[in-house]
Amino acid sequence: MSEPHNSSQPGKSITVNGVSKIYQSRGGGEVEACRRIDLEIEAGEFVAIVGPSGCGKSTLLYMMAGFSAPTSGRILCGGVPVSGPDIERSMVFQNYALFPWLNVRGNVEFGLENKGVPRDVRTEKVDRHLKLVGLSEFADKHISELSGGMKQRVAIARAFAVEPGVILMDEPFGALDALTRRFLQRELLRIWREQACTVAFVTHSVPESIFLADRIVVMSARPGELKSMIDVDLPHPRDSTSDGFRDLERRIYADLDEELAKTFSAEGLLG
């Protein structure tokens, strides 16, 4: 039903090269959010980043987006240093970050307008992406009229519509109920396969990362370092009750438990 679309834009690679991030906390102290992170995300790859909360995974993603610069090290996108936010790296935010003064169509169209896409092409692209997320009938709805799941579908359509090289996703399904989440994970995979862009997906859900990603990056407790890198070789659609899935889950949880123990002992909760 959905026409196979362009293989002309196979996504862009992301290179994270010895990146550390230290920022000033409100109290005046320094917080080391990320420490010497090296990560190579290949063009068209779907990489999930998991880690305990506060491990700097979102900080890393925001640096990839270009919102803040690494304290040391560098980040490249398609071989070019990232110097600021750019439409070639679009983003899906945890709290949707849709523009409430625009309707559904206006939100999806926003980036295309800024790219200078002519109106008729724009309309065609918006229609196609709204269809892709199953919201064709809601094009003229106001954002405030949508449920959380629908909002995130609009945000996904907005991110894909600009046909970026990379999509950065910051716990996009974190605020949704389990069933909506499950549904959107499948939708996301379907759309991603069609557009073949690179995805970096931050989550704190281990099953979600296994269900979606080609590769999972596990980060340590703060300061966030690369703890381990796990390839997911299971065929899609992945069955969360299969042995392979379970084995991966066990491995990742084992890694994370170590880190959680560190976090909690640092907070004085454990002996």
Binding site: A65, F67, G84, P85, D86, I87, R89, S90, M91, F93, N95, A97, L98, F99, W101, L102, F110, G111, E113, N114, K115, R158, V162
Partner: peptide, 27 residues
Amino acid sequence: EPHLIHAGQVFGCKSQFSLFRRIVLPA
């Protein structure tokens, strides 16, 4: 909301002017 500014930047508001016109003012 800071995320709206972020979204504006990510979706192509390159200059302060376009950020003002398309995000700050309507928000």
